[in-house]
Amino acid sequence: MRRDDTPKPNTSKTEKPGIERRNLLKGLGIGAAGVAAATLANTTAPAEAATESRQDQLKSRYQDNAHVERFYALNRL
């Protein structure tokens, strides 16, 4: 298959080379807010996301409701 003929879905802007290092910095806990902005710089997403509290992050979300029971019932068929 010729190279120029390969599928190219979703081409979009590539990342600037500097970002990886900053990510690393962020991973070390340095300048979190500023780096978040940099990470998102190319994606035009809102600057800062509303993050859940640690407690909320870990909470249970599973609900044993009619929808879920229905799924189990279909699997028993």
Binding site: E20, N23, L24, K26, G27, A32, A36, T39, Q57, L58, K59, S60, R61, Y62
Partner: peptide
């Protein structure tokens, strides 16, 4: 999570 689901934080991930 309390459901046993393993999640991760992309803001922290360094790839």
């Amino acid at each position: 999570t309390a459901d046993g689901v393993v999640l991760h934080n992309k803001d922290l991930c360094i790839g």
